[in-house]
Design a protein around this nucleic acid. Structure first.
Lengths: 138, 138
DNA sequence: GTACTTGCAAACAGTTTGCATAGGC
DNA sequence: GCCTATGCAAACTGTTTGCAAGTAC
């Protein structure tokens, strides 16, 4: 998710209406590196938008995923987490504090991943998730 | 999941009873590289064990995961798939045919992953999942 | 015989859907 | 004013749980 203006522009281009609820979700996600779940997003926004419903949050997130402004993560069993950074990068789930840390591949020279194809299969996306105890918890 | 005898031995060691249902699930998983879901396992075993319940399948899989005889995979949104191969390896989900292919890191020299720690975080497990079109489908 | 396990049904969590109303354009 | 988006509730999916009856040991 680049910036507010660019995202708004994209919504307009695709013919989506700019409702207060959508703008609130977008604002909440831009630059958000906490990888919130739909539940967490709803809980946070509910304060300012008491009538905001779950379906609107889900609809908006699904729309943002469709137009590639967020990606959904399968890091935790049983629900999805959302990341406004759609670049290919990894995630570290701390099983102690529950935090999801970003792992930027460029910063680690002990990580290398294929691009385009692997074993004859054509790759369209990659998800790398680590579990363990994070830097802060140990 | 090494072999039938070794797995049985482990169950006995841990004090689990060897019920027909458990033996059926274990036999069904050994050497199974199709990464079945609990639903698929239940469906397959139901033929020979018509009274087999979902809870027994789930209980057995959770037990096998606890004693590290299977691992659960987060490759597909919304449900878990089970893999009797607990070694660290990747998975490729074909979005066309739905097949999950194993990706053995040793076989690909364009994959390198860290061991032990990453960015100061202590790693206990890694999951790598690719999505795209598999060798067979394209 | 004594636990542990089973099977059933009900509970549960996260997500999606249907529909009447509201509101962006 | 048209048509999409919202909010609510209900439906749905995958998984877990509670409990009486059954069974491995």
């Amino acid at each position: 998710m680049h910036s507010f203006d660019k995202t708004i522009q994209k919504l307009r281009q695709e013919g989506f209406k700019l409702t207060p609820q959508r703008l609130a979700v977008i604002k909440h996600m831009i630059g958000n590196s906490r990888h919130p779940s739909a539940l967490a997003i709803h809980k946070d926004l509910k304060r300012r938008y008491p009538s905001l419903s779950f379906s609107t949050v889900y609809n908006t997130l699904n729309m943002l995923e469709r137009i590639e402004e967020v990606q959904s993560l399968n890091v935790i069993d049983g629900h999805l987490n959302y990341d406004p950074d759609i670049s290919t990068h990894g995630h570290f789930l701390c099983t102690k504090c529950g935090t999801i840390h970003d792992i930027r591949f460029e910063d680690c020279d002990d990580i290398k991943l294929p691009q385009g194809e692997i074993g004859g299969h054509t790759i369209s996306s990659i998800q790398v998730s680590f579990k363990g105890t994070c830097r802060i918890c140990r």
